[in-house]
């Protein structure tokens, strides 16, 4: 085996079927330490399902996932988070009624110990940990420029801040790999630009590898070193942004078949048909 020792997150041949629908099939990807890896594909390609498989929301029916040598498949979501895989959600899932600070403090929950006796009697060990959680949360909020909003209710934050808060909360879990599910969704061009630099600085500052689902091609091509393209639950291409961009299969998946003279969503069916031919050949 000539795999680089630096491989951090590895999925080999994972898949799941919902009824007759093969949502994800034979997906393999390797995220090395410190990598910025993109996962793209047209709507319904199975990207978020892939995230759900990696984080244990769905159980993999085939294949396996390992993180830094430990097997993740078969574990429950909270155990996977503890192993060092943290994520954000496509449709933001903050703890809306709780304060911004509480949201981030909850992120570091899994790194602490929580005994009821200590809690009830407010022992020094308990107070120490609470203080540490608060300090860490404030530090993280500071990095994302949210410190001033610490006492606000999470649901009252503007959209962009909610997205950043979610990343902030995910980082509080001390992850090895951060999964970002469409972090740029709903952002305007200038917000997207600042997001790109934020994502780069997260990687440097926290030393995490990042796996990114994103629809904004400009952003993905700009920041990712390696891209995996999914369509109909299968990997149709993988490589550097340059390579993926020029791969005819990717162009087909996104735009339909060139000979058909039609582009756009209406031609998705034929695109799939010729994709099948291409992968068979």
């Amino acid at each position: 085996m000539s795999t680089a020792p630096a491989t951090l997150l590895e999925a080999s041949d994972i898949g799941i079927t919902f009824g007759g629908l093969k949502a994800v099939q034979g997906l393999s990807l390797r995220v090395p330490t410190g990598a910025l890896h993109g996962l793209i594909g047209p709507n319904g390609a199975g990207k978020t399902t892939a995230f759900n498989l990696l984080t244990g929301v769905y159980q993999t029916q085939t294949g396996s996932v390992t993180l830094a040598g430990t097997t993740l498949s078969g574990k429950r979501p909270h155990e996977i988070a503890l192993a060092g895989l943290s994520r954000t959600f496509q449709n933001i899932r903050l703890f809306g009624e709780l304060s911004v600070l509480d949201n981030v403090m909850l992120g570091s929950h899994l790194r602490g110990t929580h005994r009821l006796i200590r809690t009830v009697f407010r022992t020094p060990a308990f107070v120490r940990q609470e203080e540490a959680m608060r300090e860490r949360a404030l530090e993280l909020l500071g990095i994302f420029g949210l410190q001033g909003l610490a006492a606000e209710q999470a649901k009252s934050l503007p959209y962009g801040d909610q997205r950043r808060l979610e990343i902030c909360r995910a980082l509080a879990t001390e992850p090895k790999v951060l999964l970002l599910d469409e972090p740029a969704a709903g952002m305007n061009p200038s917000e997207k630009k600042s997001l790109a630099s934020t994502i780069r600085s997260i990687r440097e500052r926290f030393g995490v590898a990042i796996l990114l689902i994103e629809h904004d091609m400009g952003l993905v091509m700009d920041i990712c070193e390696h891209i995996t393209v999914l369509d109909h639950g299968q990997v149709i291409s993988a490589g550097t942004p340059r390579f993926v961009q020029d791969d005819p299969k990717v162009i087909e998946a996104y735009l339909g078949v060139v000979e058909e003279e039609g582009t756009g969503n209406g031609e998705r069916g034929t695109g799939k048909a010729s994709l099948g031919k291409a992968s068979a050949g």
């Binding site: 984080t55 909270h78 988070a81 903050l94 703890f95 909850l106 992120g107 899994l110 879990t173």
Partner: peptide, 10 residues
């Protein structure tokens, strides 16, 4: 607030 998010936070 959100069971799925809670699980994801460990």
């Amino acid at each position: 607030e959100d069971e799925i998010a809670a699980r994801a936070m460990g």
